[in-house]
């Protein structure tokens, strides 16, 4: 070992003020905690809007259900990835975890656009109605992102921007999945475009601001 003596004073000072710490729970358990908050919101929305309309819609156009499942899987993968990236020494490759869910989400949504028939109890959304979707996704993403940022500030994300982008993806995915519960429009191009804009906005805003909030102090 080379020149260890030089740091003795600092090591001494740090060990003098050492206090027992509560170990961080594993990333999957922390992600599950956040998903519980999403589940509570979903339960509230289901209680308000009921299940019947959603089921009827999904039976008529299964790709809407697949898109919702894809969005949810993206949220699960991105949240798990974000909490993993919050622990020093974990691989950057965790950031690929939301990819399969995202492919399903994008694929199923795209398929909806190509469909010729319209899902029951929906109509093709006008630009104005589509902007409601944007508000819904952004509106739910803000508190969900804030919760993730608060939880992750207790960790130590050494790649703050990548972690923040995962936070954005997780919240946008969860919000889009929640939207499926009360979504009255079919997956037409205008609506899909709004969804893409909303998700892009949430991920970009998180990467820009969350990166700074999570930067190692």
């Amino acid at each position: 070992m080379s020149e260890p003596r030089r740091h003795d004073a600092l090591i001494d000072a740090l060990s003098t003020e050492l206090a027992p710490v509560r170990r961080l729970p594993p990333p999957w358990r922390r992600a599950a905690g956040w998903l519980l908050a999403v589940a509570l919101i979903a339960a509230a929305l289901l209680a308000h809007y009921g299940v019947a309309d959603m089921q009827h819609r999904w039976r008529g156009a299964p790709d809407l259900a697949w898109a919702g499942i894809g969005a949810l899987l993206t949220a699960v993968g991105a949240a798990w990835a974000a909490f993993s990236l919050g622990v020093p020494g974990r691989r950057r490759a965790w950031a690929w975890l939301p990819l399969p869910g995202a492919l399903l989400w994008i694929g199923a949504s795209g398929l909806g656009c190509l469909r010729e028939w319209i899902a029951p109890q929906t109509h093709v959304a006008s630009m104005h109605e589509s902007s409601d979707c944007l508000l819904f996704i952004v509106g739910f993403s803000v508190p969900l992102s804030a919760l993730l940022i608060v939880l992750l500030r207790r960790a130590c994300p050494l790649r703050p921007v990548l972690t923040a982008a995962m936070i954005g993806l997780a919240s946008a995915g969860a919000s889009a999945a929640l939207l499926e519960i009360c979504h009255a429009f079919d997956a037409a191009a205008t609506d899909l475009l709004m969804h893409a804009v909303a998700v892009g906005l949430v991920v970009a805003a998180n990467a820009a601001m969350g990166g700074r909030l999570l930067a190692p102090r």
Partner: peptide, 16 residues
């Protein structure tokens, strides 16, 4: 080394 030791001290709860 100093910066790392200080960071280790601050985030020691993240070690599994």
């Amino acid at each position: 080394v100093q910066e790392t030791l200080l960071t280790v001290h601050r985030v020691r709860h993240t070690y599994d």
